[in-house]
Nucleic acid binder design. Structure first.
Length: 806
RNA sequence: GCCGGAGUGGCGGAAUGGCAGACGCAGAGGACUUAAAAUCCUUUGGCCUAUGGCCGUGCGGGUUCAAGUCCCGCCUUCGGCACCA
């Protein structure tokens, strides 16, 4: 049969329509089959549409989803829209359109673009975080957190972006700049809703041991959680009866603590105002520090500043000596106790401070030169100047000193975390309203479940205000309400949730997206959860990935979901750079538009190139020429139809080994996310097919089956044209025959002293002894040895022979 | 500074301690064509005294019959964190 030209413009829409009409990719809770839940991060439907980064992750997981279906799994591969967020709101403000309208337009465009790429999403399960039927449950989970004491309102110095006019979470501040707009972030004290993620610090850490996450994601989360073990210990403040508590991970250096430092905001200063001689000076310093943003504070880290507290001294509990007390902004309020014992001999920061202010430096661990800088060797260091602890190694002394201090009742072992509570308020319009009412007599009162969803009111203006109030505050009809508890006058909370809220549980909603009674039914959750494989960006490691684990751990603790951890496996794709090797951006003019690509080379070739361009987990520059090369490959696959002899069913004897090897390699490579080498193997296969006079239906089918997860449209089409029966997506995934993984003969590289001298064919599978014997009696090899003495002879089966000659 | 990656042809990149450069791109030569496109064939790491040989995976050492791969010490680069006691 003479096939027509390969025309993706015709065949791709046809198959997309077919899959959709027949509901091929609808997920079903089929208990007769094992389930598999593939997940990609649901996109933010931005106005600029899809970029080439989306298909990278989507295609990778689409391959897994399609392969799993062929393997007999019941697969859930859903899609949705993470649609609350600032760009939409800003666009709405600039163009005087309601954000909901902008959102639905953007979603429409995104959906269309994704459909053109032929992903096997179950579109019947779409979720949209801005849909009241969705955010009803986001609000509901918030109320559960509130009920369990994990949501609270606190006056907090927050990161404030003056341009976006919004408070930011620590995670959203990058290098002192607003993650969204790049403007410098300042400090601002505001009453904010907070989520007590710190209560889950240890669980978030422990849970990492039980999941299969890409190593760098685990490392980054551990780093961010920042657990450190040490002890808290009390220093007496001379003549006051007060004690000053510090946290240290190095109790072994206590004898070297020659002064103490408090953070400028430390409460002790206000408690002891009568004794302090230079209160004005201290308050001036505090004010100055408060004005600085965190970034400014850290930027100045080279020059240490501080003020000694006049009239106050503390007692080193080890030496009994009086030591001065200072304040300095290098000690942070939010970590540990906000106070430290300073050991300048063995801590760089303390050393710099002591040098700047002429404070004494006492060496307590030998081996370095403390006149030159702080020195610390926790492995081999030995204690000196430390009384009864002299001569101990650092790790012994840490134990012994802690025991001694605990015994004296002035210390306790303590674990600290860097992780801070999550700032959960946003002073913007386009987010989930926080379902809390502030009653004059009852205080903060949660809305009853029956009043959910609390709808975002329609407003005229979305502009944020300089006062730091949400635009919702201006809608008095909405703000003024009755207290659900006492019925008295009350005001609604006007802050909204951050866009991390809706994305913290969306994977649960996919299990049962239309449920009106619960966020998802227990049965559906039990069937689908946990997510088996979740692929997404590294940039979400300390944001979305951590937040959603926290919510899920919490929902597990209150008995609403099964396993504690939501994701069994997490992988990450590298970003695609522009052709010039720089990040793609409009301003650089190096953006590749997916629509143009589909028009030019078709969705299948586009998908194929996304997988072929390089190692999946690394950053790779785009190459238009490379993409066209993938289209050429598909053209070659198409033209193989001219070579196929459908009368011959089985795999050709001559190709049996290569085909079986390919089945194994491609399958294995998909599982290991080595998509580039999987594609390379199929290219090799096609090249070899072209060297044959004819290929059999068996040869051709094997290729099509392997290729179909990456390039589904062309494979379905050819399957139909060749009348192979049924549809390719219904075929079982091919299995290799282990008996045909190695050829009858192997080419052996014969080396002399590690250098290849010749190549000889031998029967494959010979062991060391037989292989050596077989080869060393070959005339070529005898000649090679030329009577020299053989010191050693190594035979690696089917690979090489190395003769070590004198 | 700490944590985690990465350094291999002109380019993207392959390589369970076992023949470095698979596969693709780009280039060169050829076939077909009036011509072009498309397609097909050949070729493509460097150097040399070229049917052979030498050198080559960021740098310097080491282990090994054998190192891109393992070990020690560096350099460069990217990402994350960063005065966290």
């Amino acid at each position: 049969m003479q096939p027509e030209m390969y025309d993706p413009k015709v065949i791709e829409p046809r198959w997309q329509q077919y899959w959709e009409e027949k509901g091929i990719f609808r997920a079903s809770e089929d208990h007769s089959r094992p389930k598999y839940y593939c997940l990609i991060e649901f996109p933010y439907p931005s106005g600029s549409g899809l970029h080439v980064g989306h298909p990278r992750s989507n295609t990778a997981m689409d391959i897994i989803a399609r392969k799993r279906r062929m393997e007999g799994y019941s697969v859930l591969y859903p899609i949705g829209w993470d649609a609350f967020g600032l760009p939409t709101e800003n666009y709405a403000i600039a163009n005087h359109v309601p954000p909901a309208k902008v959102t639905s337009q953007n979603i429409g465009r995104f959906r269309e673009q994704l459909k053109r790429l032929g992903f096997s999403f179950d579109y019947s399960r779409e979720v949209n975080t801005t849909d009241p039927q969705y955010y009803k449950w986001t609000q509901w989970i918030f109320l559960k957190l509130y009920e369990h004491g994990l949501a609270y309102k606190a006056e907090m110095p927050i990161n404030w972006c003056p341009r976006c006019k919004i408070g930011l979470a620590n995670e959203e501040v990058v290098g002192g700049m607003c993650e969204r707009c790049g403007h410098e972030v300042t400090r601002r004290v505001k009453k904010q809703w907070m989520l007590r993620i710190t209560a889950y610090a240890q669980k978030l850490l422990d849970g990492l041991d039980d999941v299969d996450f890409i190593d760098r994601a685990k490392a980054q989360q551990r780093n961010w959680i920042g657990r450190s073990e040490g002890c808290e210990l009390d220093f007496a403040v001379s003549g006051t009866g007060e004690t000053l508590r510090v946290f240290t991970t190095r109790p072994d250096t206590l004898f070297g603590a020659t002064y103490m430092v408090l953070s400028p905001e430390h409460p002790l200063i206000d408690r002891l105002t009568d004794r302090i001689e230079n209160l004005d000076e201290l308050r001036a310093y505090r004010e100055q520090a408060a004005k600085k943003s965190d970034f400014e504070r850290t930027e100045m880290q080279k020059e240490k500043t501080g003020v000694q507290i006049g009239g106050l001294s503390a007692v080193n509990p080890a030496t009994g000596k009086e030591i001065p007390v200072w304040i300095s902004d290098y000690v942070l309020t939010g970590y540990g106790t906000g106070a430290i014992m300073a050991v300048p001999a063995h801590d760089e920061r303390d050393w710099a401070f002591a040098k700047a202010f002429g404070l004494p430096i006492v060496e307590v661990i030998s081996g370095g030169d403390v006149s030159q800088g702080a020195w610390s060797d926790t492995a081999d260091g030995v204690l000196v100047n430390s009384g009864r602890f002299n001569g101990m190694k650092v790790n012994e002394a840490q134990q012994a000193m802690t025991d001694w201090l605990v015994f004296r009742g002035i210390a306790e072992r303590k674990v600290n975390f860097k992780l801070r509570d999550w700032v959960f308020s946003r002073q913007r319009y386009w987010g989930e309203p926080i379902p809390i009412v502030h009653c004059l007599s009852c205080g903060a009162v949660p809305l009853p479940e029956s009043e959910l969803p609390l709808l975002l009111p329609a407003v005229e203006h979305y502009e944020p205000t300089d006062s730091g109030e949400s635009p919702l505050a201006a809608i008095t009809d909405w703000v003024n309400t009755a207290c659900p508890h006492c019925g008295g006058p009350a005001k609604r909370e006007t802050d909204t949730m951050p866009n991390w809220a809706g994305s913290s549980w969306y994977f649960l909603r996919y299990c049962d997206p239309h449920n009106g009674e619960a966020f998802a039914s227990k049965a559906s959750l039990d069937y689908w959860m946990p997510v088996d494989w979740y692929n997404g960006g590294m940039e979400h490691t300390t944001l979305h990935l951590l937040y959603s684990r926290f919510w899920h751990l919490f929902l597990h603790d209150i008995g609403l979901v099964g396993a504690p951890e939501p994701y069994r496996k997490r992988t990450s794709h590298g970003n695609i750079l522009g052709e010039n090797g720089e990040r793609m951006s409009k301003s650089r003019g190096n953006v590749i538009n997916p629509d143009d690509l589909v028009d030019e080379i078709g969705a299948d070739a586009f998908r194929l190139y996304e997988m072929f361009l390089g190692a999946f987990d690394q950053e790779i520059p785009w190459s238009m020429a490379g993409a066209r090369g993938c289209r050429r490959f598909l053209d070659r696959v198409w033209r193989l139809q001219e070579k196929v002899d459908n009368g011959a069913g089985d795999i050709s004897p001559a190709l049996k080994v290569l085909v079986n090897q390919s089945i194994r390699k491609v399958g294995d490579d998909y599982e290991r996310m080595k998509y580039n080498t999987a594609v390379a193997q199929m290219m090799t296969l096609v090249n070899v097919y072209y060297d044959q006079p004819r290929i059999t239906a068996g040869d051709f089918k094997a290729l099509l089956l392997l290729l179909s997860p990456v390039a589904p449209h062309i494979c379905e089409e050819i399957w139909q044209i060749q009348r192979y029966g049924g549809f390719i997506h219904q075929m079982p995934w091919p299995e290799y025959d282990a008996a045909f993984l190695t050829a009858d003969e192997a080419e052996i590289a014969v080396q002399v002293n590690g250098k290849v001298r010749m190549k000889l064919m031998v029967p494959s599978g010979l062991d060391q002894e037989t292989g050596r014997a077989e080869l060393t009696r070959r005339p070529e090899v005898v000649e090679l040895i030329a009577g020299r003495e053989i010191l050693k002879c190594i035979y690696v089966p089917d690979r090489l022979l190395n003769l070590v000659l004198r």
